[in-house]
Design a binder for these strands. Structure first.
Length: 271
DNA sequence: CTTTGCACCTGTTGGC
DNA sequence: TGCCAACAGGTGCAAA
């Protein structure tokens, strides 16, 4: 999926076009996502005016006076603003029709995403309540990571990708941040000293910041709200670079399976 | 409680 | 060319 930089880029792209605008209705062509799309979405949204768009981890929250539309992009999801008369293609599952000539379209080939109406306070929703610290929150630092790791022994890459620990870091940026911190992805969190936790927190924030500046990473499905791709894949240090020389020391980058995911690291820079 | 592996789903790629 | 296995931005859940 889109990780934090892709979700945030989407949010920023939509914000100026949506806030203050009214929804005229919604069309659900295929509500079979990770969870069924809220029934009667059309009735819930009709006439409602968008107040704000927020992000929590990899979730987007469209705020209305009447409630919130919670959206997750899964692995292959994408939100785009398109002309109202643009014909729907095969994986265009939901259209939110806006006043004016445009609609907000959710496209998601793998259907791991979600679109749910939340009536009460969004923070109380089960999917959001257990989420961990935001990487750009001031509470996020080496000390916080070390505290969260207490009593655990999982591999640090797994730990970083756990949204109940830190939000927004997925498979690409976990590999990238660990490279910049010089930490081996398989290292147990029980064997990381304080100074290295500091390095890691800085590396996570720095990696996400640079990805954000590049408009995110486009491997295949992801695109910004206006349809343009992200460019971070061109500056990745290790992700997708198996066999290529490490940009720092020249050693070939290694790819291996960790859990069910591919992990990339430099055997000589990361210990 | 923690850790591990599966499940969900479709499309693309690479090897034979 | 065709076929099939492996792999792709995630994460809730069951089992141990």
């Amino acid at each position: 999926m889109p990780e934090l930089p892709e979700v945030e880029t989407t949010r920023r792209g939509l914000l100026p076009h949506l806030v203050g605008r009214r929804v005229e209705g919604a069309v659900v062509r295929n509500g079979n996502l990770r969870w069924p799309v809220t029934r009667n979405l059309d009735r819930r949204l009709r006439g409602a005016k968008v107040v704000d768009i927020r992000r929590r981890g990899k979730y987007l929250l469209f705020d209305f006076p009447e409630g919130h539309l919670l959206v997750h992009l899964g692995m292959s999801g994408r939100l785009s603003l398109v002309p109202r008369d643009q014909p729907a293609r095969s994986h265009d599952h939901v259209d939110v029709r806006l006043e004016g000539a445009q609609l907000l379209r959710l496209t998601d080939p793998r259907r791991f995403g979600a679109m749910l109406w939340v009536a009460g306070p969004a923070e109380d929703h089960a999917l959001l309540r257990g989420l961990g610290v935001e990487p750009f929150d001031e509470a996020f630092d080496g000390a916080a990571l070390q505290r969260l790791a207490r009593g655990r022994r999982v591999a640090v890459k797994h730990f970083l990708m756990d949204a109940h620990v830190v939000t927004g870091v997925g498979n690409i940026y976990a590999s990238e941040a660990l490279f910049h911190a010089g930490i081996h992805p398989l290292r147990s969190v029980a064997r990381i000293a304080r100074a290295r936790w500091d390095d890691l927190a800085i590396a996570v924030r720095d990696t996400l910041t640079r990805a954000l500046a590049a408009g995110g990473t486009t491997l295949r499905d992801y695109a910004q709200a206006d349809g343009s791709p992200g460019y971070f894949q061109h500056e990745s240090a290790v992700y997708g670079r198996a066999g290529l020389p490490c940009r720092r020391c020249g050693t070939p980058i290694r790819m291996q399976r960790q859990g069910q995911r591919s992990t990339f690291h430099c055997p000589s820079c990361q210990k």
